[in-house]
Design a protein around this nucleic acid. Structure first.
Length: 489
RNA sequence: GCGGGAGUAACUCAGUGGUAGAGUGCGACCUUGCCAAGGUCGAAGUCGCGAGUUCAAAUCUCGUCUCCCGCUCCA
């Protein structure tokens, strides 16, 4: 089973120290969340699992950690300054809010002559368009919502502000990156040359990104500050479609291998009209984040996107391509990012396959999918978080059966200390053994080691399994090996 | 921005004008010892904030702030 809704997870996450509302003592901050002691472990484990799978277990991958703040030109030529902005209009009558460009597109579809009209505002929007909700034509001005967080470098804030209205290009304007991908593209040549790589190969990166979402929400599903796990796989043009399909399958299987139920996963082919400006084809991996919704189609939302970005980005950041007038398309770049294939004696701009996953969304999906309830023999409900052992924040809890026996307590603490260099281990004695087990079940600890009276004589302990509640007697000398084997499984 | 919901202890929530409560959880001690056992004691809230009405406000009035859900998306 999995969680019936996100609310269940929000409550558990706060109660048990996974995720807290950010800035809570000052009334909170919308859609910002802090990861508590268990949350940070879970996040780190997700990232570590991804990195191992993506980088270490392959022969064609390098890692990277690029800067969050990049030269503004990166966002100019990537297209984000232009397209990462949604023009919005409000209907004054029914208060509905719409994307002006989408309404305009629809309008022009039915009125081809409108394509040549020049509108008063910078944003193309015909005020005679009827509201799809109420039918009125009473609009506010169309306003641009740029999704990139803008800031300025240095102490010259005033100069930076001037650019809000005009088109003056100032070098002190900077953005927090809205995706980690661009940091990879602009380092493509350096990574390829310093690591002596031949296409095909990939560059992976994990890091925070920022988008000034107009509509954040749904717990950690959509936040303005979030963390991405992205990889750009560079292939020869023509080999892109095959590689794309391979990565789609790889990624789907990765989530399944870490315990996500296939019933709660699906692949979603983005229709042509939804594709981003850079994409030739994009397939999303959806997770059933909203199982409580009546409409089955609305159960699903994106966990990961796998895009074929073609050669759009490498070309866009290169100095060489010329337009039809023979002038450089990118007069600011100092480098050409094409690749020379020694074997084939040909030069080309590699195509890029991009699997992009959200750390936070992944964490949410893993939590939801791991959630289960079990009824004890006494008929009491118990929450068991069946996280994959690789992801569990705490791997083992060492518990004394009786805390008023110093020998047992001492032995338990010694065992905990012997395990902690190898895995995240905790000691707990604040409660009866049943309560201690229940606590660990609720936070997903795969194993509990219990020290009892007999342990003092036979140098053995009980290892209790989270999912089956079965117990096994293990010699203390064999404990490390036993746990490590079962953790890898 | 618009619509809806909500702010009281760490959590879940009672409390319709008269000395701030319960359950869970948390801590200490006693007792017990394999699936949230029992007992005793304890810590914990200027009731989101501000103003007003009143002898008296968690409660009534006005204002204000914040959070959550839905609408624009796509990690």
């Amino acid at each position: 089973m999995s969680a019936p809704n996100i609310e269940t997870i929000v409550s558990l996450a706060k109660r048990r120290g996974f995720v807290f509302p950010s800035s809570e003592i000052y009334g909170g901050l919308g859609s910002a969340w802090d990861y508590g002691p268990l949350g940070v472990e879970l996040c780190n484990n997700v990232k570590r699992a991804w990195w191992r799978w993506m980088v270490y277990e392959r022969d064609d991958m390098e890692g990277l950690d690029s800067s969050i703040i990049l030269n503004r030109a990166v966002w100019k030529y990537s297209g984000h300054e232009e397209t990462f902005s949604d023009p919005l209009v409000d209907c004054k009558k029914c208060n509905g809010r719409f994307r002006a460009d989408k309404l305009q597109e629809e309008y022009e579809h039915h009125h081809p002559e409108a394509r040549h009209l020049v509108y008063e505002t910078k944003i193309r929007f015909n005020p005679n368009i009827k509201c799809p909700n109420c039918g009125a034509s009473d609009w506010t001005d169309a306003r641009p919502f740029n999704l990139m967080f803008r800031t300025q470098l240095g102490a010259t804030a005033e100069a930076a502000n001037e650019t809000d209205e005009g088109d003056i290009y100032l070098s002190n304007v900077a953005y927090l990156r809205p995706e980690t991908a661009q940091g990879i593209f602009i380092n493509f040549h350096l990574v390829q040359q310093t690591m002596r790589r031949k296409v095909p190969f990939g560059i992976a990166q994990i890091g925070k990104s920022f988008r000034n979402e107009v509509t954040p929400g749904n717990f950690i599903f959509r936040t303005r500050e979030f963390e991405q796990m992205e990889m750009e796989y560079f292939v020869r043009p023509g080999e892109d479609e095959t590689a794309h399909q391979e990565w789609i399958d790889n990624c789907y299987n990765w989530y399944a291998s870490l315990g996500l139920s296939r019933d709660n996963l699906r692949l979603y082919e983005q229709p042509k009209e939804e594709l981003a400006h850079y994409a030739k084809r994009t397939v999303d991996i959806h997770y059933r984040f909203f199982p409580e919704r009546a409409d089955e189609e609305k159960h699903w939302d994106e966990l990961m996107g796998i895009a074929n970005r073609t050669d759009f980005d490498l070309k866009a950041h290169s100095k060489n391509p010329l337009n039809e007038e023979g002038k450089r398309v990118n007069p600011d770049s100092t480098e050409d990012l094409s690749y020379f294939d020694e074997a084939r004696k040909e030069r080309y701009y590699p195509y890029v396959i991009e699997p992009a996953a959200g750390v936070n969304r992944s964490v949410l999906a893993f939590l939801m999918d791991a959630y289960s309830e079990r009824t004890t023999e006494k008929g009491e409900p118990r929450v068991v978080l069946k996280l994959h052992p690789k992801l569990a924040p705490i791997k083992v809890a060492v518990l004394p059966l009786a805390k008023n026996k110093p020998e047992i307590v001492g032995m338990a603490k010694a065992i905990k200390r012997s395990l902690q260099p190898l895995m995240r281990a905790v000691y707990d004695d604040t409660g009866g053994i049943g309560k201690l087990y229940a606590r660990q079940d609720e936070i997903g600890t795969p194993f509990c080691v219990t020290v009892d009276h007999q342990s003092l004589e036979d140098e053995a302990v009980t290892v209790r399994d989270r999912d089956t509640w079965e117990q096994e007697r293990i010699k203390v000398a064999d404990l490390q090996q036993h746990l490590q084997t079962r953790l890898i499984k």
